[in-house]
Each structure stands twice: as structure tokens, then as C-alpha cells.
Design a protein around this nucleic acid. Structure first.
Length: 730
RNA sequence: GGGCGAUUAGCUCAGUUGGUUAGAGCGUCACAUUGACAUUGUGAAGGCCAGAGGUUCGAGUCCUCUAUCGCCCACCA
């Protein structure tokens, strides 16, 4: 057994120890034969395969690992299974960028080849983050790693789709959806980001009215005008049909002979009396709000923008132009014809694709929608009746607000990388979906399809065609919603579902957490986890978001390299009080100093007790006031740590421990012990107390700083010592 | 427009149900030092607890308003 000497050097210790832990098999609950308590199961917020470790991961996984290690040492069967998310759009985007560098594109390759490329990419880079997590010291069960596109996982995803279909929750709809022209796919509202844009508010003459719009180019798709029902100014027009000359477009292929469009004036509460002139043009095909107004008043859908973000033939001479260019040209033309009354500078938010940043064009498109009402109620009930607790409680509000106002979920995506829909179309009666780049040809077209795990041998409709699988794939979140059970094998599900805790950042509370909750109940009849802990976001010291693209990100591996994983974890936890963290590097300095203290104090105890350092299991008795104080303090900190961690008070927990160890143990007891050790009457008992207290302290600290505590533990010959401190009973 | 959170020492933050001289880490200053540890020890300086008003015997803590910052949600075209 190596004695404790020299300075603590994490470099030579952490990697070796991690290997030993891994080989021991104790990360796997099946091997925790002495643990007979209930299960403690945690879920990893799946990193994207494209991801590399950032401070957010480091925080999340450190907190999770603390709880896993804490409960493992308290006799629970602990399981934390890792995985990565195929991250449809994100990954496809990354690989497309790579192809571009190579001078090719996914369209040049074709679907099959492209998907092969993505798998290649995944196999080459997809495991990087696992190695990085290991450096952090996380004790998750690597024998259970899953990828959301593994065969078994894919089967669960398809089953889920089929289940919803059979239940009548899935439907095809021709609707205006958020569309990214660059990615050529629909997006759900949660996949949008908003960017402030300086633009203009154009006041244009419009029949008998003047109205304000930011998007004059959509006017060829106008099928209505809307006013607020309480607006006296326009009362007489409500319900009237108007012929609007300003819409006439020379050379429009759509209606070459007719130069007037029929516009119906409707009254709708969505219209703000105060804004603009109080009257708004309604373009149901190219605006989500207008679509809703349109559907409330049965206004027709007239498409004027295609899936590449260009004006179509209905825009006459503007056809083929990008919407932005068309807007400039139209404004010019409106000016010359005197139809532009005025323009005002106007700042508003435009929706952009969360992946590629391209401006979103709402366009009508045939998509699959999941009815959310019943599922949302399920998720709401789980939290309202306290079966799932969200910590801190304030986050219940955004959760419930979202679910109470939920819209049906567009689950289909027109990309290639993902779970292809288990849907097969009859070729003879359906052509629309055969090419994902142009999925829409006619919204009214009748479709014949079968929802099935396997391709039907014979088409049930025409009986002759070779049925064709839908080219669409599912929203990535459709599959990650199943993680708590789909991430486990069939037999594991019986043992390890449901779980206990989910720790995550707030940005995926609805995107992921809410969806896991109803999915768990829907498919496994039980909530997936009892507690959801939302931790803060790590910001820069100036309070800015850490972002790779802005260059404000900090690589946690840099700290692990320089100070070791324990000091890094210490620094993170020190600051993890629940609020957002303005990252302060000096917390790691504190960690480093502390580890040194721990190392040296342990060395002191070892040198004082080297003749027999195995007397530590039984509780020592107190012979002096100092003895009494340290044993009382130890009892208190043991209890406090328990309470703090059960309440997710990570920062308080480590600060209390630090205080205890540095001041109560080192500054006070260790100093007094020097005298007590020199007196025969107290010598032996003091040695016992030193050993006992140190051992208990190592147990308490282990979840936070696992490497150094394991290393020190290994260098003592404690009474009834376990193979690893990691599996000691605390 | 709505919701949530923040505002305490030079910096980053604690401060539980209102109760004696408001705490920590880092930094600063002084002194110490070969015996676990200089990644140390002892001590010190440093705060009208964002502002205003209110409740109370008593407010960093509770209430109201204001200001600044951040995040989330939202259909002002």
C-alpha cells in the first residue's frame, strides 16, 4: 500500500482510478450485490452526437454524479445510463457543411449515400463526448450506452408512432407551418429562435382602406381583411366582400384575365385596434396567425411562396424572386403607383431556424400532427397532483402555461437524418410525398397510406403498386421523449423503470421534460421520474451567454487538464446554488487549495497512526472537550449533508463540508490532537478519533471529489475496508 | 404586452420561517514560519444590504412603488 506523500497530483491518479472503477463493474446496478435498497435512477440529458463537452454539460453531469454516488453509498441500486441523441436537423446540418467543404451536397449524393455519410460521421466523432464525460469522473453505466437511432430504439419510436395513430392522435393536415427554406423542412414552434430586425412598417392603400404591413410581398396571398369586432370604424364593412384593385398583378399566371381579388372583411379578436390603422390583411398561407384567423372564418389558402422561399407564379412578375428581394421591388412599385402611403421604421422579431439561422417562411404544407390536448392534460396532472415535482417550484409555471396553451405538434420533418415514418403510400393515388424537397403539390389531394411497422407486401388500395415509405422523418424530440424507457432494454425496463430524478437546464423543460412525462405515462403507465431539478445556466463573468460561435464559451476540459477533475467539480458545485452562475474561475482555485488541504491532513493522520490504521469502524468515545466537539461536529455535518443533498442544495452542501473539514477538523482538532497524541492517557483514543473522522469525512466528500477521496481511501488499511470507497456504505 | 429571477465587501455569491457586532471564497494588507499543508497559519482592512415609502418594539429578510440587468412566454400585422 502506497503511503500518502508528496503533493497531490491529479494527472497521475484520475485516469488510472477511472479505469479501475470502470473495470470493477460497480457503475452497473446489477453488480451492486450488497445494495438492497430501492432503485435510484437518473437520466442523462442526451448530448447531441455532434456535441462536445461544455460548461453546461459539466455542471449537469457533476450534479447528477454527486447524487448517483451519494445514493450508491447509501445502499441503493443506482443506475444512470448514458446516451447520445441523433439530433436530426443539427447533425444533418453539420454533415452538410462538411460536404460543402468537400465540394458536394446531400442532393448530389442522394438520400441513401447521405445517410451512410452521417453514420460514418457519427462513428468517427459521436463518442468524443463520452471520453470527455469520463474525464469528469461521472459514474454512469457504460455497459448500457444507447443512441437514439439504435435498432431497438428505432423500433420503440415506430411503435410509438403506430400507437398514436391507432389511438387517433395522429392526423395528416394541410396547414401553414414554420418552414426553413435552407433546411427544407418544417419546424415546431419550439425549434424557432427570434432575432430582432430593423425593418419597415409599410402603410399601403388597400381598396377603401389603408393598412400597415411588414410583408407587402405576401399580399398576393391575401384572402381576407380583419378588424377587431369592437372597432366602430370598420363595423359597416364586416362580412362584406371587396374587390381590391391593388392586388392586380400584371402577368399573373394564376388569373391572367382577372385583375381583381375577392377579399372578405372579417371581425376577429386577434386584431389590435391600436396597431397601425386597426385593419390587417390576412394571408392564411404565409402567416401562422393569419392561418388561424383564416380557419376561424373559412378564408381560402392561397400560396404565393414556395418551399425555397421564392415567390411563385401567382406573384406575377415577381415570381422566382426571394421574398426579401420581392419585397424591395414591390415597395418600389407601390411607390411609383402611389399606393404606398408612408413607411415607418419598425423593429420587430423575426423567427429564424434554431439550427441554421435562416429566416422562417411560414408556408402551407402537408404534415403529420400529434393531437396534444389529452397528452398535455396527462403531463399537467402529473405535476399538479405532485407525482412529479419540479424544483424549484417556480418552474411549474412555464410548464403549466405551455401545456395549457398547447397546439398540436408538427412531428414530421422533411430532412433525411432521423426516424423515417412507418407510413407507406400507395403510388397510384398519391404522388405528393415522393420527393422530400417538394413535398407539397396540392393540398387538397387525397392520400392513401398504411401505417405499419413493415412495408405491406401488397398495396391494399390499388393492389398492384409497390408501396413507398414516406420520406419524412420524425422530429428529434419525438424520439428523445421516449428516453426513460426506450433507452433501456426490455428486461431492464422491468427492473429499472420508473426512475427517480431528472436534472436538466430550463431550456428543455417543455421541449423534452414535459414530453417524457406524458410519454412515460402513455407507454409505460407510470411517470418516468419523481423529481425534476432545474439548475442554473453557466454564464460568463459578465453575465453573457456562453456560446462557441460568439467565442464566449469556456472549455471545462481546460480546467480538468490544469487542475484535475476534482478541483473542477469543486469549483462548479461551489457555485451551483440554483441561480444562474456568472462563472468565477477562482472557485476552482478554492477547490485546488482544498484538495491540497485534504491530502495533507490525510497524510498527517496516516503518519500519526501508521502502526495501526485499521481501527476506524467503531465509533470512538470522547475523552476531552476537543474530542466531544469534533465528534459532535462530524455527526452534524453528516446529517446536514444528507439533508442538503436531498433538497438539491449542492452549493450549501459543499460549503458546509468545507467549513467543517478546514476549520473544525484541520484548524481546531488536528492542532489539539498534536498535544493529545503526545500524552499517553489520550494518545490511542485520539488516533482512533482521527482515523474515524477522516474515514467518515472521505465518505461525505466522495460524491463531490471522487478521485482524491478514492485515492486517499486506497492508501489506508481501514477496518472492513471495501474494494472502493465508491461502494462504501455511508 | 405578460411571467419569472436578480440587485448584499474590489470580484463571484450565501444569508432558512423578520431578532443581538451582516457571512464565505477569491483578491488586498500586516505579521508568522523549518514538525500534515506557503496551495499554510494568525490577524486586519473593506458593506447607508439598488432607491423611495410602509408594516413592526425590531427589516438584508414582509408589503407597495421606482430604477437597472437577465431569462422565458406572447398573434401588434
Amino acid at each position: 500500500m502506497e503511503s500518502i506523500s508528496g503533493a497531490y497530483d491529479p494527472k497521475n491518479i484520475e485516469g488510472v482510478l477511472y479505469k479501475k472503477w470502470e473495470v470493477s463493474g460497480y457503475f452497473n446496478p446489477d453488480n451492486l450485490s450488497e445494495n438492497e435498497g430501492e432503485n435510484y435512477i437518473a437520466y442523462m440529458p442526451l448530448p447531441n452526437v455532434t456535441g462536445t463537452l461544455h460548461m453546461g454539460h459539466a455542471l449537469n453531469n457533476t450534479l447528477q454524479d454527486i447524487l448517483i454516488r451519494f445514493y450508491r453509498m447509501r445502499g441503493k441500486k443506482t443506475l444512470w445510463f448514458p446516451g447520445t441523441d441523433h439530433a436530426g436537423i443539427a447533425t444533418q446540418f453539420v454533415v452538410e457543411k462538411q460536404l460543402k467543404k468537400e465540394g458536394t451536397s446531400r442532393f448530389a449524393l442522394g438520400r441513401e449515400k447521405f445517410i451512410e455519410k452521417v453514420w460514418e460521421w457519427k462513428n468517427q466523432y459521436g463518442n468524443i463526448i463520452y471520453d470527455q464525460l469520463k474525464k469528469l469522473g461521472v459514474s454512469c453505466d457504460w455497459s448500457r450506452v444507447r443512441f437514439t437511432m439504435d435498432d431497438t430504439y428505432a423500433k420503440d419510436v415506430q411503435n410509438a408512432f403506430i400507437h398514436y395513430h391507432e389511438k387517433g392522435f395522429l392526423y395528416r393536415g394541410y396547414r401553414t407551418v414554420n418552414w426553413c427554406p435552407r433546411c427544407a423542412t418544417s419546424l415546431s414552434e419550439l425549434e424557432l429562435e427570434y432575432k430582432e430586425e430593423e425593418s419597415k412598417l409599410y402603410f399601403i392603400k388597400y381598396g377603401p382602406f389603408t393598412l400597415a404591413t411588414t410583408r407587402p410581398e405576401t399580399k398576393f396571398g391575401d384572402t381576407g381583411l380583419a378588424v377587431n369586432p369592437r372597432d366602430a370604424r370598420y363595423k359597416e364593412y364586416v362580412g362584406k366582400e371587396l374587390e381590391i384593385e391593388s392586388l392586380s398583378i400584371e402577368g399573373s399566371l394564376d388569373e391572367p384575365s382577372k385583375k381583381k381579388n375577392i377579399i372578405i372583411v372579417v371581425a376577429d379578436d386577434a386584431v389590435d385596434v391600436e396597431f397601425g390603422t386597426g385593419i390587417v390583411k390576412v394571408t392564411p398561407a404565409h402567416d401562422l396567425v393569419d392561418f388561424e384567423i383564416g380557419s376561424r372564418h373559412n378564408l381560402p389558402l392561397v400560396e404565393v411562396i414556395n418551399e425555397r422561399g421564392e415567390m411563385n407564379s401567382r406573384a406575377g412578375k415577381y415570381a422566382g424572386m426571394k421574398t426579401g428581394d420581392a419585397r424591395r421591388k414591390i415597395v418600389e412599385d407601390l411607390k411609383t403607383t402611389g399606393l404606398l402611403e408612408k413607411e415607418e421604421a419598425y423593429t420587430h422579431n423575426v423567427a429564424v431556424c434554431y439550427r441554421c439561422g435562416h429566416v422562417i417562411e411560414p408556408i402551407p404544407s402537408r404534415q403529420w400532427f400529434l393531437k396534444m390536448e389529452a397528452l398535455a392534460d396527462t403531463a399537467l396532472d402529473a405535476v399538479k397532483n405532485g407525482k412529479v415535482k419540479i424544483h424549484p417550484e417556480n418552474f411549474e409555471k412555464p410548464y403549466t402555461v405551455w401545456l395549457e396553451h398547447i397546439k398540436d405538434w408538427t412531428v414530421s420533418r422533411q430532412i433525411w437524418w432521423g426516424h423515417q415514418l412507418p407510413v407507406y403510400f400507395c403510388k397510384n393515388k398519391q404522388e405528393a410525398s415522393s420527393n422530400s424537397q417538394f413535398p407539397i403539390s396540392n393540398g387538397e389531394q387525397e392520400e392513401k397510406y398504411v401505417v405499419s411497422m413493415k412495408k405491406p407486401e401488397k398495396c391494399p388500395f390499388c393492389e398492384t403498386c409497390e408501396m413507398e415509405q414516406s420520406p419524412d422523418v420524425l422530429d428529434t424530440w419525438f424520439s428523445s421523449a421516449l428516453w426513460p424507457f426506450a433507452g433501456l432494454s426490455e428486461s431492464d425496463r422491468k427492473k429499472y423503470y420508473p426512475g427517480t430524478t431528472l436534472i436538466t437546464a430550463r431550456d428543455i423543460l417543455n421541449l423534452w421534460v414535459a414530453r417524457m412525462i406524458y410519454s412515460g405515462i402513455e407507454f409505460q403507465n407510470e411517470i418516468p421520474f419523481k423529481d425534476v431539478l432545474i439548475h442554473g445556466t453557466i454564464l460568463t463573468k459578465d453575465g453573457k451567454r456562453m456560446s462557441k460561435s460568439l467565442g464566449t464559451g469556456i472549455d471545462p476540459l481546460k480546467y480538468i487538464e490544469a487542475y484535475g477533475a476534482d478541483a473542477t467539480r469543486f469549483g462548479i458545485v461551489w457555485q451551483a446554488n440554483g441561480q444562474d452562475i456568472r462563472w468565477d474561475e477562482t472557485a476552482i482555485t478554492a477547490g485546488k487549495k482544498f484538495l491540497n488541504k485534504l491530502w495533507n491532513a490525510s497524510r498527517f493522520v496516516q503518519t500519526q497512526t501508521e502502526k495501526d490504521d485499521s481501527r476506524s469502524l467503531k465509533i470512538p468515545e470522547a475523552k476531552t472537550d476537543a474530542d466531544r466537539n469534533i465528534l459532535a461536529a462530524l455527526a452534524k455535518i453528516t446529517k446536514d449533508t444528507e439533508t442538503n443533498l436531498r433538497m438539491f442544495e449542492f452549493s450549501k452542501s459543499i460549503r458546509d463540508l468545507y467549513e467543517f473539514f478546514w476549520h473544525d477538523f484541520c484548524d481546531t482538532y488536528l492542532e489539539i490532537s498534536k498535544k493529545q497524541l503526545s500524552e499517553l492517557s489520550t494518545k490511542e483514543n485520539t488516533e482512533h478519533i482521527l482515523l474515524f473522522t477522516l474515514r467518515e469525512t472521505l465518505k461525505l466528500f466522495h460524491p463531490f471529489v471522487p478521485f482524491i477521496t478514492e485515492e486517499i481511501y486506497g492508501r489506508f488499511s481501514f477496518d472492513q475496508k471495501k474494494e472502493f470507497l465508491m461502494v462504501e456504505r455511508a
